[in-house]
């Protein structure tokens, strides 16, 4: 008895509205679980502070040596770097160890015992995982870069406040969308574990792709001109580059809405792709048994 996938009646991107309450519960459960790891949060904060300082020094040297005008000024770059360090955990650069373990020991099949659409269920779990780290590490990082640095007389290296009220609203909106996009990307990696099991390879590929193409290594506008058309259309820039530049005003208010639509479209596309692949993964799971 083979069950044929019903592609004709593909479910809406995020399941039905009835899924929202369980989804919220699942997000908050994963979130609360991860908030317990305070030592990890502290260690993460210290590491990211260190990396932030190194990135700033490298970029500052670059700006000092530059002879031509750059598409971003140094203040905007400093904001870009600190926001990147604060929100690093939200980038889809790794898979949830909890998930990997469940797939390895086959217990992931038991998730089918819940009366939920499996994609929505896993989306909720992944969203909780994605947003837990930045709340723990991001808030102290912002306080450090915005308040402590100027007090220590290092105002040139401090995180500036948002460019305007509009920029701030756009930043918050783009951050929410970025979290949803990051979750869709992470979930694709999680689903791929159904085939690869170990997930070590996925982790490495993701880390490279995401850190380079989101702008985390070098802000995207500083890449060569011939790369810009490609960089402007790939999804990863919605994760970091867009929100950080909206914050600093490097993306002007008039362009905010199109940029938000850009992130949203990629999110929906990756969610639909994830659903399709999961459909095949589940078929495999229910045929081979966990």
């Amino acid at each position: 008895m083979k069950q044929t996938p019903r592609i004709a009646s593909l479910p809406p991107a995020f399941g039905s509205w009835r899924d929202i309450r369980p989804l919220v519960a699942v997000v908050s459960a994963r979130y609360r679980t991860l908030l317990q790891y305070r030592a990890a949060a502290f260690a993460g904060f210290a590491t990211q502070l260190f990396w932030g300082a190194i990135r700033l020094m490298i970029l500052a040297a670059f700006f000092a040596a530059a002879t031509e005008p750059q598409p971003m000024n140094l203040t905007e770059v400093v904001a870009y770097v600190w926001l990147g360090q604060a929100l690093l955990g939200m980038l889809p650069w790794n898979v949830d160890a909890d998930f990997r373990q469940q797939i390895r020991d086959g217990t992931v099949a038991y998730d089918l015992l819940r009366p939920l659409d499996l994609y929505s269920y896993w989306y909720g779990r992944t969203l909780g995982f994605r947003v837990a780290a930045p709340t723990l590490r991001g808030i102290p990082m912002v306080l450090f870069a915005m308040v402590l640095l100027p007090l220590a007389g290092l105002g040139d290296w401090a995180l500036i406040p948002p460019a305007s009220a509009v920029a701030f609203a756009g930043f918050v909106g783009s951050l929410v969308l970025a979290a949803m996009l990051a979750t869709a990307v992470t979930l694709l990696a999680h689903i791929s574990l159904l085939w690869t099991i170990s997930g070590v390879g996925v982790d490495r590929i993701l880390t490279v792709l995401v850190t380079i193409f989101s702008g985390l290594v070098v802000p995207l506008p500083l890449f060569p001109d011939w790369l810009q058309p490609f960089l402007n259309w790939q999804p990863f820039r919605g994760l970091a580059d867009v929100p950080y530049r909206i914050y600093s005003g490097n993306i002007p208010p008039a362009e905010i809405v199109p940029e938000l639509v850009f992130i949203l479209v990629w999110t929906v596309a990756l969610v639909l792709l994830g659903r399709l692949i999961l459909l095949r993964g589940v078929r495999r799971m229910v045929v081979q048994g966990g």
């Binding site: 009366p115 229910v286 045929v287």
Partner: peptide, 25 residues
């Protein structure tokens, strides 16, 4: 409802577990 059989039928309260998974579980 979390594993499909190769053949045969099964009804639980009128539902086929692996077809009507969400309602069944």
């Amino acid at each position: 409802g979390i594993l499909n059989p190769t053949s045969g039928t099964c009804r639980v309260d009128g539902l086929t577990p692996w077809r009507d998974r969400r309602r069944h579980v």
